[in-house]
Simulated scan of single mutants.
Amino acid sequence: MLPHKTLFPGVIELNYQAGEVLGCNVYLVHDQGEWTLIDIGYEETVDEFVELIRQLDFPLSKCKTLIATHADVDHIQGLAKAKQMLRTSVTSHPLAVEALQTGDKLTTFAEIKAQNIHLDMPPVEIEHQINDGDTIRIGNLELEVWHTPGHTDSQLSFRLGDVLFSGDNIYRDGCVGAIDAHHGSNINDFIKSLERIRDSDVVWLLPSHGPIFRKDNEMLNRTIDRLRSYLKMADFGTLANEWPLMDEWENEVADGTLPDGVGVKKG
């Protein structure tokens, strides 16, 4: 059995566990022998993630469900394959159901002709729909569901004590998930979601991309102000040529670097 690289009690991030970045962050939440995954990433990495879970000594039959934070291809392309391998269910927000069940390539960003992006998007049946205020129980742990739209209309976050699995709402460098009208983005909703995160007593943010970090209200305020400026500007849809945070994240994962105060050994 591999030793668990535990971030918080009951929480493992599979890229950090593997010591290399394989895709979006995939969080394994576990307690009392039961476990779930928040996102799964691309189809091509499913085998590697499932083998890693097996080596961590989590029985595959004890996977309660696979949770989609939202319907973007880089988060959910592997759902159909993982669901079949684990013989489990899939859980999402109601607004993500149609795109996931039909394998909608445009809504999920699997097909972006102008950038020569042409990815498969296998459809997957959604057994469970969740919305704001619902809870998901894993053993004795309870994930509180937050609906935090803005990046997409279906974006979900999940609170576990003083930790928030924050999806594509905010990253350590103050960036946010892509804003695109065809994607279901809404800047006003995005601002409200960031204000909710800022005003909460959550301590740690566990995003869907890049390193986890301590909530920084000054940084959140700067991001909120930037998004407010987008309401009167035409450049919010521009695409960056690079993202330095991802280079930092690659190095931190390889080195096993975590913020001070994080990293509880368990198992």
Results as ranks from 00 to 15, higher is better:
residue 132 D to A: 14
residue 117 I to H: 05
residue 47 D to Y: 09
residue 233 M to W: 01
residue 82 A to Q: 03
residue 153 D to M: 13
residue 67 I to N: 03
residue 136 I to Y: 05
residue 203 V to W: 00
residue 155 Q to D: 12
residue 51 E to Y: 05
residue 190 F to G: 02
residue 185 S to T: 02
residue 115 Q to G: 04
residue 63 C to T: 04
residue 255 D to L: 14
residue 266 K to Q: 14
residue 57 D to A: 15
residue 258 L to A: 04
residue 22 L to T: 04
residue 120 D to V: 08
residue 171 Y to L: 09
residue 170 I to R: 02
residue 55 Q to C: 11
residue 27 Y to V: 02
residue 255 D to K: 15
residue 235 D to A: 04
residue 56 L to E: 10
residue 227 L to W: 01
residue 140 N to L: 03
residue 133 G to S: 12
residue 134 D to M: 02
residue 57 D to Y: 06
residue 62 K to I: 00
residue 78 G to S: 04
residue 119 L to C: 06
residue 83 K to H: 05
residue 1 M to Q: 07
residue 30 H to T: 13
residue 117 I to E: 06
residue 28 L to V: 10
residue 211 P to V: 04
residue 127 E to D: 14
residue 124 V to G: 10
residue 234 A to E: 05
residue 111 E to L: 15
residue 3 P to V: 11
residue 68 A to D: 01
residue 7 L to K: 02
residue 220 L to H: 12
residue 80 A to C: 06
residue 182 H to D: 08
residue 266 K to D: 07
residue 191 I to V: 14
residue 78 G to Y: 03
residue 97 V to M: 08
residue 33 G to Y: 03
residue 260 D to R: 11
residue 136 I to C: 07
residue 180 D to I: 07
residue 175 C to H: 09
residue 202 V to C: 10
residue 35 W to A: 09
residue 145 V to N: 08
residue 126 I to L: 07
residue 225 D to I: 12
residue 237 G to T: 09
residue 152 T to K: 09
residue 19 G to Q: 06
residue 64 K to T: 13
residue 3 P to Y: 00
residue 121 M to Y: 13
residue 172 R to F: 01
residue 229 S to Y: 02
residue 86 L to G: 02
residue 244 P to W: 00
residue 256 G to S: 11
residue 164 L to H: 00
residue 48 E to S: 13
residue 54 R to C: 10
residue 107 T to I: 15
residue 59 P to T: 10
residue 34 E to P: 01
residue 59 P to D: 03
residue 155 Q to L: 06
residue 69 T to S: 14
residue 55 Q to I: 02
residue 181 A to E: 13
residue 19 G to T: 11
residue 109 F to I: 06
residue 90 V to E: 03
residue 9 P to W: 06
residue 167 G to W: 02
residue 145 V to I: 15
residue 230 Y to K: 06
residue 191 I to L: 07
residue 35 W to E: 05
residue 162 D to W: 06
residue 114 A to V: 13
residue 57 D to K: 15
residue 97 V to L: 01
residue 123 P to S: 12
residue 76 I to M: 07
residue 53 I to Y: 07
residue 190 F to H: 15
residue 69 T to W: 00
residue 174 G to M: 09
residue 41 G to C: 13
residue 176 V to C: 12
residue 266 K to S: 08
residue 238 T to E: 05
residue 22 L to D: 02
residue 57 D to R: 14
residue 254 A to V: 11
residue 190 F to D: 00
residue 167 G to Q: 03
residue 219 M to L: 15
residue 146 W to N: 07
residue 112 I to G: 01
residue 170 I to A: 07
residue 59 P to Q: 12
residue 139 G to Q: 08
residue 90 V to H: 01
residue 35 W to N: 08
residue 129 Q to L: 09
residue 12 I to T: 00
residue 185 S to I: 11
residue 160 L to G: 05
residue 139 G to Y: 00
residue 61 S to G: 15
residue 246 M to N: 04
residue 262 V to G: 07
residue 217 N to S: 05
residue 13 E to G: 08
residue 108 T to C: 12
residue 49 F to W: 10
residue 123 P to H: 04
residue 150 G to K: 11
residue 95 L to V: 01
residue 195 E to M: 09
residue 259 P to D: 07
residue 151 H to D: 08
residue 56 L to S: 10
residue 218 E to S: 10
